[in-house]
Nucleic acid binder design. Structure first.
Length: 428
RNA sequence: GGUGGAGUGGCCGAGUGGCUGAAGGCGCUCCCCUGCUAAGGGAGUAAUGGGUUUAUAGCCUGUUCGAGAGUUCGAAUCUCUCCUCCACCGCCA
C-alpha cells in the first residue's frame, strides 16, 4: 500500500509512473472522491467536536444538579445529523481505501521500463552450460526411468500438477532443502523458523496477496459473510514477513534475517496449458525462503546481499544461471525492484526462473504496521521488507537432474550434496 | 469440547459512565549533582488520520484502552458477538 497522503498529493505523477507497471489509475475518480472525502471529513469532525464539547457541558450541568432533559433532546437530534454525515464519509473513505489497496508499488528508478518479460535485462551470467556428447533427456524422462518421479500416482491421489517422489530422488529433494537451509543459517546469518502453513486473512492482506490475488490461493473454507477461512501459504514469505506485523523494533534490532523451508500451495488459476509437463509448475512445491527486515536506508543494499545469498546456492551446486532485473511491467505487485535468478535447463535449452528476490520497501510494512524506533528519536518509522527464494527446491531438483545427467541415465550427485545423501555419489 | 479468569501506551500496571488520552513504575531523552563507575535530584516522553502550512515546525481538530456491533447526550468503564491468552477438566499425535 502506498502512503495515502503521497498518493493524494501526487495523483497525476503517480498515475504516470503506474502506467509503467501496467496499472491504470482513474485520476478523475480519485480526484473526485478525494474532494468529497475532504469536505465530508471536515464536516464530520466539526460535528463530532461540538458533540464532544456539548456532552462535556451536559456532564457538568448534571453534576450541578441542573435539569438536562431538554439538552438531551437537543443532542438526540444533533446525533441524527452527525450520523448521516458520518455514514456518507465512511462510504467515500471505503472506496478510496479499496482503490489504494489495489495500487501496486512504484518501481525504483533503477528498474528498466517495460511491459513484459521480454524487456527484462540480463545483469550477469555465471557458469558455462555443459556440452553434452549425447542427447540430453529432460527431468521427466530421467526421473521416471530411475523410478524416482511418479506422476501417475500423483494424478491418482490428487490430480495434475502434483508429484510423488521416491527413493534416492525423494532423498535428494530433501537433501537440497537441508543444504540450502544450512547454508543460509550457518553462513549467511539467517535464523531458521518453523512456521504455520495455514494463515489468516490479516496475514494475507499484510503481504498483499489479498485483496487482489485471492484466486491464486487454496482456502480451507469457502468464503462466508464473516470472511474467508484460513488459506494455505503460497510462499513462506507470508508467515515470515508477518512476523513483523504490529511490531515496534529498536533500531539496534535491525536487520532481522529469517528463513524457513516450507511447502507452497498455488492454485495456478489461469495457467492452464503452461508448463504442464514435469515439475516446473506444481500446485504444491517446496521452497526455502529468505526474508529481511531492514532500516529503510539500507534496503537496496540488502537486496544485493540477499540476491547474493540465493546465487551462492546455485554456485555451490555448480549450476549455471543468469541474473535478470525485472522490468516495471513484469514485477510483482508489491516490489520496488526484483532480481530473478534463472537456472540453465539443458533439455529446454534455456534459462528458467528458480528464484525471485525483491525489495518491497515500506509497501508491506505500511499494511503490517511494522515499525522501528530510530535510536534517540521520537517518531517510529516503517521498516523495509525484502524477500527472496533461496531457492525453489523442486525446480532446483529439476536443474540438478538435467545438468548432472550422464549418458547412461544415471545422475551424478553434486559434491556439496554428497554428505546429505549418505555419501552416495550417483543415483541410478 | 466444558468451566472459570484475563486482554489498557515501547514494557509492567492502576482505573466500573463525564474533570481519564488514561495514575504509578520501568525504559528512554535532556539537564543538575557526584573528580571515572555506581547511586541521587529535576524536567520531558503514546500512536495515528484530517485541516492550516514550504514544513514529518507550530496551531486547530478527529480517532484509538484485543476486534466488531450496540446502549447513551457522553463508553477503557454497561450489553452482545468474535478472537487471543491463562488455569482446571475432557480428548489427542
Amino acid at each position: 500500500m502506498l502512503d495515502s497522503k503521497f498518493l493524494r498529493v501526487n495523483v497525476r505523477a503517480t498515475a504516470e509512473k503506474l502506467i509503467a507497471r501496467g496499472y491504470t489509475l482513474d485520476v478523475a475518480l480519485v480526484v473526485d472522491l478525494e474532494a468529497q472525502r475532504k469536505s465530508l471529513q471536515v464536516k464530520t469532525e466539526t460535528l463530532q467536536g461540538s458533540r464532544n464539547a456539548r456532552s462535556k457541558e451536559i456532564g457538568i450541568a448534571a453534576k450541578r444538579g441542573d435539569d438536562i432533559t431538554s439538552l438531551r433532546a437537543e443532542m438526540n437530534k444533533f446525533s441524527v445529523e452527525l450520523n448521516a454525515v458520518k455514514t456518507k464519509f465512511e462510504a467515500v473513505n471505503a472506496q478510496i481505501k479499496e482503490i489504494a489497496a489495489s495500487v501496486p508499488n512504484l518501481a525504483h528508478e533503477s528498474v528498466p521500463i517495460g511491459s513484459d518479460e521480454d524487456q527484462n535485462i540480463e545483469v550477469s551470467k555465471w557458469g558455462n552450460p555443459k556440452k553434452f556428447a549425447f542427447n540430453v533427456k529432460d527431468h521427466v524422462d530421467l526421473g521416471e526411468a530411475l523410478d524416482g518421479l511418479d506422476f501417475k500416482s500423483a494424478v491418482k491421489i490428487s490430480g495434475s500438477r502434483f508429484i510423488v517422489m521416491k527413493g534416492q530422488i525423494a532423498k535428494m529433494h530433501r537433501a537440497l532443502a537441508q543444504y540450502m537451509l544450512n547454508l543460509h543459517t550457518e553462513e549467511h546469518g539467517y535464523t531458521e523458523l518453523y512456521v504455520p502453513y495455514l494463515v489468516n486473512a490479516e496475514s494475507l492482506f499484510g503481504t498483499t496477496q489479498l485483496p487482489k490475488f485471492g484466486d491464486d490461493l487454496f482456502n480451507t473454507n469457502p468464503a462466508t459473510q464473516e470472511g474467508i477461512g484460513m488459506s494455505l501459504i503460497p510462499t513462506a514469505e507470508v508467515p515470515l514477513t508477518n512476523m513483523a506485523r504490529d511490531m515496534m523494533y529498536d533500531e539496534a534490532d535491525l536487520p532481522i534475517k529469517i528463513t524457513a523451508h516450507t511447502p507452497c500451495f498455488r492454485s495456478e488459476a489461469g495457467s492452464y496449458g503452461r508448463d504442464t509437463r514435469g515439475l516446473i509448475r506444481q500446485h504444491q512445491f517446496d521452497k526455502v525462503e529468505m526474508v529481511q527486515f531492514v532500516h529503510p536506508e539500507k534496503s537496496f543494499a540488502a537486496l544485493e546481499e540477499l540476491t547474493g545469498h540465493a546465487e551462492q546456492v546455485l554456485k555451490n551446486l555448480e549450476l549455471p544461471y543468469r541474473k535478470v532485473i525485472l522490468c516495471t511491467g513484469d514485477m510483482g505487485f508489491a516490489a520496488t525492484k526484483t532480481y530473478d535468478l534463472e537456472v540453465w535447463l539443458p533439455a529446454q535449452n534455456t534459462y528458467r526462473e528458480i528464484s525471485s528476490c525483491s525489495n518491497v520497501g515500506d509497501f508491506q510494512a505500511r499494511r503490517l504496521k511494522a515499525r522501528f524506533r530510530p535510536t534517540g528519536a521520537k517518531k517510529p518509522e516503517l521498516i523495509h521488507t525484502l524477500n527472496g527464494s533461496g531457492l525453489a527446491v523442486g525446480r532446483t531438483l529439476v536443474a540438478v537432474l538435467e545438468n548432472y545427467q550422464l549418458e547412461d541415465g544415471r545422475i551424478e550427485v553434486p559434491a556439496v550434496l554428497v554428505p546429505y545423501m549418505g555419501g552416495v555419489t550417483h543415483i541410478g
